[in-house]
Design a protein around this nucleic acid. Structure first.
Lengths: 177, 177
DNA sequence: GGCCATTTGTTTAAAGTTCAAGGAGGGTCC
DNA sequence: GGACCCTCCTTGAACTTTAAACAAATGGCC
């Protein structure tokens, strides 16, 4: 049954529409996804915590820094690359700094700015732990998927990521906010 | 070039083998995956925190309970279903109990055991917030993927999840542990 | 029954994350 | 210059997660 004739142009107000529930099949997909992600995340977190003494996210930060021009990035840029908030990054860098793997440096151009710089020790930790990490990723993911599946996964997650990228000027619900 | 002839039967010791680095293409897949997951997780967490006053994981617990026979599950079973540790569950249930959405009940058969039971209030919160949540999931994922991609995603993540399931008697590294 | 390993669930503290607030510099407009 | 708003990054408190330790109960096993 449809909405009563008195319904407005539709799709404008809150969203009292009929919920678009997931079909049985969609549910199965969604649950597999969530389970896989949860298990994988925990697995990698534990692997890195054990072998590198830091969570996966922190490891990712070191990687980004290692790839950056002078092994340094502005805090905001690093936060964006890593898809985390600046606040979270501040805390994370503070911790990595204590470990001696990163240090902060003032930005000459902008006195508000800070660079996070990967130290030599940081780079070394990365070198030592990278093999173990790739291996874990391989065993958990790539070794189990066909080339087509790998390609597919890349495409799919690229789409999902794009849809959620900041500047969500997309088809979101900018109203009701 | 292969390993020197003096190499042992191979694949037995630690893993001083040559690291199996990711190819450029594999890296792209992996990064898209991690980005997508990070963004999606944050998005849903914020959505539920805002609309339901709890993180995504907690919401998932309520869902599992709602689907269980008498809206109740043993702690260990719930933990396994939700893929989280018992410790984490203990904390989570404590919090949900404070909200009045879950309450604990002793298990008659096993005096160590506890049931987590979804309360009427809990069920109601679920009913009220489920539409918003599905909508968020749809917009972020299903609306953007073709039916084939959805199917593919399900298969892929099912494989990944299976590989990491407890009872990792699989092709893991039971040695080196 | 008594012993012992295992299972169940909780607890504690430390670590990590989130949220809201805030200090400080930069940029613009008058 | 000064008012004003925005960006950059940090901070502290509240909350969540992790890791390790633990008490209680169970289930063999002798």
């Amino acid at each position: 049954m449809k909405a009563p004739a008195s319904a407005p142009a539709q799709g404008s107000a809150a969203e009292p529409q009929e919920p678009r529930w997931l079909t049985h099949e969609e549910q199965r997909v969604w649950r597999s996804f969530m389970e896989g992600v949860t298990l994988l995340d925990d697995h990698l977190d534990r692997q890195l915590q054990r072998d590198a003494g830091m969570p996966h996210v922190y490891y990712g930060l070191l990687v980004k820094l290692a790839e950056a021009p002078r092994r340094r990035l502005r805090m905001t840029e690093l936060a964006m690359l890593a898809k985390i908030t600046r606040s979270r990054l501040s805390h994370a860098v503070a911790r990595l700094e204590k470990n001696g793997w990163v240090h902060r440096e003032d930005c000459p151009d902008d006195k508000r700015g800070q660079f996070a710089v990967l130290t030599d020790e940081g780079l070394q930790v990365l070198r030592q732990t990278a093999p173990g990490h790739v291996e874990a990723v391989r065993q958990a993911v790539f070794d189990r998927l066909s080339p087509e599946q790998q390609k597919s996964l890349g495409e799919i997650m690229r789409i999902v990521a794009e849809g959620l990228q900041p500047t969500e000027a997309g088809a979101d619900l900018p109203w009701l906010r």
